[in-house]
């Protein structure tokens, strides 16, 4: 067994150790991704609204 394989097998606990880390990474990553995407969408919407409001103000 190469050292790398030994590392992956986690002394026989691979089936428990790696899923724990994977679940944590997945949950935190997904939350971060969703938050960033939602902020981006909101920012775009706000931008659109503000430029629209600005144009209307300059028209009058």
């Amino acid at each position: 067994m190469t050292p790398f394989q030994a590392f992956l097998s986690m002394g026989g606990y691979a089936g428990y150790v790696w899923p724990s880390f994977a679940i944590a990474a997945l949950a935190l990553g997904a939350l971060l991704f969703a938050s960033l995407r939602s902020r981006k969408a909101t920012a775009a919407e706000l931008d659109a609204l503000e430029t629209q409001a600005g144009e209307e103000a300059s028209e009058t």
Partner: peptide, 14 residues
């Protein structure tokens, strides 16, 4: 606990 103790590094902080 062998290598399973490494779960602690996500479990306890979480």
């Amino acid at each position: 606990q062998g290598d399973s103790v490494r779960i602690m590094y996500v479990h306890v902080p979480a």
